[in-house]
């Protein structure tokens, strides 16, 4: 492969405060995301995967270690790393689909005027929403809203797309379709993305590389290559999904889910 590392994390320890506790979300996590990777961060609730993505986004500063994007230290949020969130309210409700995309382009200085509008329409067409370009977000379904958010993120043409469980709030059938569409979009433009999920199935299907985190606090447990077909993983001799499943459940024999880790 010999691909270039776009994003790297070295010894990343992340902490956040709740009213009565200092919580260590991740502990000395290392990772490298290469160009055109579909890099999936997978782990159970409480492994700090969302917190890790927010740190890459520049919203949280590591207490230890560093995150670099193309060699530059990540210090604050910026348009070179665009987040797609799980929540449907990530679209600006006072702007139409088209205006949501152009707003992002003009406010970040990526494009302006006619160029911004053309680029917006190009990406809106890619997610098959041309007919709804002038609709306001509240008239769209959940799946359509997430497609707009993806179009808006792709239109920014960032170094890396950061996806924080973008399909988790969708119904199962819509989620499946969105996963397939995301892969088609990737085939089309080969963007680099970092995708957080707690679903083994989603991770296996979408990824080219999987970073598996253990919970409380999140530490690196394994990294696997994937081609989306859930084939035999050479290290363990099992199907990839089974290998991941066994690793996760070896760590925590009988624990209940503790809600999601959106903090």
């Amino acid at each position: 492969m010999g691909a270039v590392s776009v994003l790297s994390g070295r010894g990343v320890t992340l902490q956040y405060k709740t009213p009565d506790h200092l919580v260590v979300a991740t502990y000395r996590v290392d990772f490298d995301v290469h160009a055109s990777d579909r890099f999936v961060v997978l782990g159970p609730s409480g492994c700090g995967k969302s917190t890790l993505l927010k740190a890459v986004g520049g919203y949280i500063a590591p207490t230890e270690g560093e995150i670099r994007l193309k060699g530059e230290l990540v210090r604050r949020p910026g348009p070179d790393r665009i987040m797609v969130f799980q929540e449907f309210d990530q679209l600006l409700p006072w702007k139409s689909v088209r205006q949501n995309v152009t707003f992002a382009l003009t406010e970040s200085g990526r494009a302006s005027g006619k160029a911004a509008d053309d680029r917006a329409m190009h990406y809106i067409e890619k997610v098959k929403l041309t007919k709804f370009a002038n609709s306001y977000p509240h008239t769209l379904s959940g799946g359509m809203k997430q497609r707009v958010a993806i179009a808006r993120a792709m239109a920014m043409e960032p170094e890396i797309l950061l996806m924080d469980e973008p399909f988790a709030a969708l119904d199962a059938l819509t989620r499946r379709r969105m996963q397939e569409e995301l892969l088609q979009l990737w085939d089309d433009t080969r963007f680099t993305m970092m995708f957080v999920t707690h679903s083994i199935e989603e991770a296996v299907m979408l990824s080219s590389r999987i970073l598996l985190l253990s919970p409380h606090p999140g530490r690196v447990r394994a990294e696997f290559n994937s081609n989306g077909k859930d084939e035999i993983e050479p290290l363990t001799g099992q199907k990839l999904s089974v290998a991941i499943h066994d690793l996760l459940f070896a760590d925590q024999p009988e624990t209940e889910g503790e809600g999601d880790d959106h903090d």
């Binding site: 949020p77 910026g78 665009i82 987040m83 969130f85 309210d89 990530q90 600006l92 992002a104 406010e107």
Partner: peptide
């Protein structure tokens, strides 16, 4: 919502 604020900051606002 915190999400909207984060979206705004993502564009460098």
């Amino acid at each position: 919502s915190n999400t909207l604020r984060m979206v705004g900051r993502n564009y460098g606002l």
